[in-house]
Simulated assay, not measured.
Amino acid sequence: MQSHRDLDVWKVSMELAREVYAVANQMPKQEEFRLTGQMLRAAVSIAANIAEGHARATRKDYAHFVSIAKGSAAELETLLLLARDAALLPPEAVAGVLDKTERVAKMLARLYARLKEPQPN
């Protein structure tokens, strides 16, 4: 693998970020600098941390950034649930994005586990 752009988890996380941008456009204007901004930052952080980690020199560094991406996925899930439960977004607008967030989180968990496996000397 030459680039982070070759990773399926990066590709799906980029799709997720685009979907979050689309859903964020449905948020009330007064949330622009509150919940909406935080949702967008969390979504972008996932793909950005995958890319940054992949560019690092060691597996340990890569795993660290994948761990941060996992945290951002959990944050995004929480923010989407809050937006739905607070009636800031309709449930049908959030459902698909939540599904993709869960998919990315599972992919990140698998990548993290692989990166933490002992390597032969």
Rank of each mutant, 00 (worst) to 15 (best):
M1Q: 05
S3G: 02
H4S: 07
R5S: 05
D6K: 09
L7A: 02
D8K: 11
V9S: 03
W10K: 01
V12Y: 03
M14A: 09
L16Q: 09
A17C: 10
R18T: 06
E19I: 02
Y21H: 12
A24I: 11
A24F: 05
A24R: 04
N25F: 01
P28Y: 10
P28L: 13
K29E: 15
K29N: 11
E32D: 13
E32S: 13
M39Y: 08
L40G: 04
V44I: 14
I46F: 03
I46P: 00
A47Q: 08
E52V: 10
R56F: 10
R56C: 10
A57Q: 15
R59M: 12
K60Y: 07
Y62G: 02
Y62N: 09
A63G: 10
H64Y: 08
F65G: 08
V66W: 05
V66G: 04
I68P: 00
A69F: 02
K70Y: 00
G71W: 07
G71R: 10
S72K: 00
A73Y: 00
E75P: 01
E75L: 04
E75I: 04
T78N: 11
T78R: 07
L80H: 05
L81N: 11
L81P: 00
L82W: 13
D85V: 13
D85S: 12
A86V: 06
P90S: 13
P90W: 04
E92D: 15
E92T: 06
V94M: 08
A95V: 02
A95C: 06
V97Y: 08
E102I: 00
E102C: 01
R103D: 12
V104M: 07
K106H: 11
M107A: 15
L108K: 02
L108H: 02
A109C: 01
A109M: 03
R110F: 09
A113S: 15
R114M: 06
E117L: 14
P118H: 12
P118K: 14
P120I: 05
P120S: 13
